[in-house]
């Protein structure tokens, strides 16, 4: 590593002469060691999936959930340093609740991503802090319905509001990924952690930008991608964590929830089956390092 010994990597908020912040780059290394996390934006919802590496046989299976809910309609998953991820989520929940405090409405996913991007970025500016050792994927469903102001009473005219302009669609699925630098983009499909390269190439094959993938297909694809990206040689055991957010008339009614047991088991069964199918070529193309 070119940074070592130069001294430019010892403090956050100090650039190297060629314009790099090495502390941020080391944070990215921390992310690259984390279990794979995937997010898929589907036409009628969003899916989050996580390869939760089992670090001890003494941990209770199914406990210690890693994909967190923010407000009711947003989910966050991260790869990298676990405590950093939890702090990140805690901040996101504060932002969402602060938003509600003033605007009496749920925070739009884009606004949360923007605020969290700024928050992560601020941790690259000062020598007294270190950058977040996580890359976080934020998934949300912004309500397509006209929401009342929290607490309001009354409902306006019986015939509904006058002068609405039809034709436009409002609300819908959103997916963002925030990196340790604070950089964030909106994605059709996002992946981070150990198996991100494989996961990304699998996501690309789904042609997500066409917007044809249904939520249920998305769940199955997400599970499959986590299984495909899992490296059996390095990590023995992992648990799959799967959450989703559907439209208001879908299975989760716009809320971020765990994928129900039956569907998750079905998705895992299909994922394992697809791995058996191409078992041979998996040995051939020696996975990336």
């Amino acid at each position: 590593m070119t940074s070592i010994g130069t001294g430019y990597d010892l403090s956050n908020s100090v650039f190297s002469p060629d314009g790099r912040n090495f502390q941020v780059e080391y944070a990215v290394k921390a992310v690259e060691n984390g279990g794979t996390a995937v997010g898929i934006k589907c036409k009628d919802g969003v899916v989050l999936a996580l390869e939760k590496l089992v670090t001890s046989k003494l941990l209770k299976p199914g406990a210690n959930k890693r994909i967190a809910t923010v407000d009711r309609n947003i989910g966050i998953v991260s790869s990298g340093l676990l405590p950093d991820g939890r702090h990140f989520v805690s901040r996101a929940r504060d932002e969402a609740s602060q938003w509600r405090g003033l605007y009496k409405a749920p925070i739009p996913t884009s606004s949360l991503a923007d605020r969290m991007g700024s928050y992560a970025q601020a941790y690259t500016l000062y020598s007294s802090v270190r950058p977040f050792g996580v890359t976080a994927i934020i998934a949300g469903w912004d309500s397509e319905a006209e929401l009342p102001v929290d607490g309001q009473v009354g409902s306006g005219p019986g015939v509904g509001s006058g002068g609405k302009k039809g034709g436009s669609k409002y609300g819908g699925p959103h997916l963002y990924m925030i990196e340790p630098s604070g950089l964030y983009w909106g994605y059709y499909g996002a992946a981070t952690g150990k198996g991100r390269q494989i996961a990304k190439s699998e996501l690309e094959k789904l042609n997500l930008s066409e917007g044809n993938l249904s939520l249920e297909e998305g769940v199955k694809e997400a599970a499959r991608i986590i299984y495909v990206a899992h490296d059996d040689n390095k990590d023995k055991e992992f648990e799959l964590e799967l959450t989703w957010i559907s439209s208001l008339n879908g299975p989760t009614k716009g809320r971020h929830e765990e994928v129900p047991k039956e569907l998750k088991e079905e998705a895992e069964r299909l994922a394992k089956k697809s791995l058996e199918g191409d078992d041979d070529d998996e040995d051939e193309d020696k996975m990336e390092e």
Binding site: D71, R72, S97, R100, K104, D150, G151, Q152, V153
Partner: peptide, 12 residues
Amino acid sequence: QYLDRLLNSLDV
């Protein structure tokens, strides 16, 4: 209405 919002945040 204040209590309604308080219960809402409690539920969240």
